[in-house]
């Protein structure tokens, strides 16, 4: 019995040590980087807000940011988040109070490289500029947005999340 226990411990203890050390290293790295990562993510939001409404100042509410410039209300900006083909697509949307999209900007996504990733490029996102919310659908779904060849799922995902969130935000502001 003693021999057997020794053999098992001889195998188990090194594995436990490896796991504990790795866990400790991970915890330390997480602690060291947590604040930086949060700052980086916050900066991304700030940056995308200024891309949507350059020069405006923002007041945050629970769900969206209102953009004002020189005391005058410009519109709303909010994050639309939805499931794409292989990742969560996070998009910053600028919306005029009359229900027209100002522009959109993809904050983060990890879709298929070379295919779905094209949803973040201006060729695709500029299609949203100045469109009415109800028209923001793919052409094959009765809207005005052209899907990217070979990436219909990603294109539909971003289009639908933008429209759905925009409808919710517009209702809240009224």
């Amino acid at each position: 019995m003693g021999e057997e226990l020794k053999r098992i411990l001889g195998i188990a203890i090194p594995l436990i040590i490896v796991c504990v050390l790795s866990g400790a290293a991970l915890t330390a790295s997480y602690d060291l980087t947590e604040e930086r990562i949060e700052a980086v993510e916050q900066e991304k939001i700030t940056e995308s807000l200024s891309i949507i409404f350059p020069g405006a100042s923002f007041t945050a509410t629970d769900d969206y940011y209102s953009a004002t410039m020189g005391g005058e209300e410009m519109g709303y900006a909010f994050i639309a988040e939805g499931r794409g083909y292989s990742s969560t697509i996070k998009t910053m949307v600028g919306l005029y109070p009359n229900g027209t999209i100002r522009r959109i900007y993809v904050v983060s996504q990890s879709e298929t490289p070379g295919l779905g990733t094209s949803i973040a490029e201006p060729d695709f996102t500029s299609q949203f500029n100045g469109k009415r919310i109800e028209d923001v659908r793919l052409r094959q779904d009765g809207g005005v947005i052209d899907a990217i060849t070979g990436a219909t799922i990603s294109s539909r995902a971003i289009t639908d999340t933008v429209r759905e969130r925009a409808e919710v935000v517009l209702n809240e502001t009224r």
Binding site: S29, L32, T33, R36, I37, E43
Partner: peptide, 11 residues
């Protein structure tokens, strides 16, 4: 670890 540090210090 590489991922965490890259996210924080080389966004």
């Amino acid at each position: 670890i590489v991922e965490l540090f890259m996210h924080g210090y080389a966004p």
